[in-house]
């Protein structure tokens, strides 16, 4: 029984990694740009579709597709930030919601027009379709790969934010936008950069999903709600919060399926509500003055 439970936890952590990739970008964008990006799930979706398109174009090489696909999403993020989002930073939050939600609807229909409504699902790369015995059960190599990828992204983001000059500027802008600008931070370029990074992260999540999940229009809507739960739970704008929040929701989900199957759906929301009662700014969020 103990081994079965440990295995279940490990599986939950792999699901958490997908959540983390999406929630990280969502939280980063909110922290710096102060925009709740409803289209983040749609970016995850086009990450999957673009990666799939590259996969087909380059004769089925998953690794090339994995490198190129998310970069294309980042470029799309550039278009989105420079031509659209930039115009609503000062507008009412309702306009930001309308704009980002419009992107959800448009992108859903665009992928349906381009790729058709049928499910797409390229085969899992041969090198990652095996399994290793962990706690007495076979754990897919691909899941280990996802765990590693999620961990590497977390490490990379931490190094970037803590050890680089750009990271310093990002943190300064997130902490106090006016002060950072007064001190000479060129916020428009920084905003574009952060949005592209967030889009790349969502795109990477989508790209990593294609060998093991079916790709379909509207797939972004299936993950965005949980990503929001993670971000709110961890604290809006906090990357550490997004990471811990993802792990918590992932584990809650996989253990909920075993112990509280009838209740599993509500579990994440209940935990979120409980945390918000005690800490309205989330686990690692900053209390608004």
């Amino acid at each position: 029984m103990g081994r079965v439970l440990l295995f279940q936890g490990l599986v939950g952590l792999t699901e958490a990694m997908y959540l983390w990739l999406v929630a990280a970008g969502l939280s980063l964008i909110f922290g710096v740009l102060r925009v709740l990006n409803f289209a983040h799930g749609a970016l995850y979706m086009i990450g999957a579709y673009l990666t799939y398109a590259v996969f087909r174009a380059c004769g089925g090489n998953f690794w090339i597709a994995l490198l190129v696909g998310p970069v294309l999403v980042a470029l799309f993020g550039w278009v989105m930030e420079v031509f659209f989002l930039r115009r609503v930073y000062r507008a009412d939050v309702a306009f930001q919601l309308l704009l980002t939600f419009a992107f959800v609807l448009i992108l859903d229909d665009v992928v349906k027009l381009v790729f058709g409504p049928v499910y797409q699902s390229p085969p899992t790369p041969k090198s990652l379709s095996g399994a290793v015995m962990v706690f007495g059960s076979p754990l897919p190599t691909y899941h280990l790969f996802i765990l590693a990828a999620g961990g590497l992204v977390a490490l990379g983001l931490w190094l970037f934010l803590e050890k680089t000059r750009w990271g310093l500027l990002v943190r300064a802008t997130a902490a106090d936008r006016e002060m950072a600008r007064a001190l000479g931070v060129r916020s428009s370029r920084l905003f574009t950069g952060v949005f592209m990074l967030g889009a790349w992260l969502a795109g990477l999540g989508g790209a990593l999903s294609i060998p093991v999940r079916s790709i379909s229009p509207g797939m972004g809507e299936l993950i965005i709600i949980e990503a929001f739960v993670v971000v709110v739970l961890g604290g809006l704008g906090s990357l550490r919060g997004a990471f811990i929040g993802s792990l918590a929701i992932g584990l809650l989900h996989s253990y909920g399926i075993v112990f509280l199957p009838v209740f599993e759906l509500a579990l994440a929301y209940l935990v979120m509500a409980a945390v918000l009662v005690v800490r309205p700014w989330g686990l690692f969020g900053v209390r608004e003055a």
């Binding site: 079965v4 279940q8 599986v11 699901e15 999940r213 299936l222 996989s254 399926i257 075993v258 599993e264």
Partner: peptide
Amino acid sequence: ESFAKFGTVDFSSHISKVMG
């Protein structure tokens, strides 16, 4: 038995539970 909610994107936890 494991019942997955509508809109499930990942069945890993359901599979590991049932295979247990």
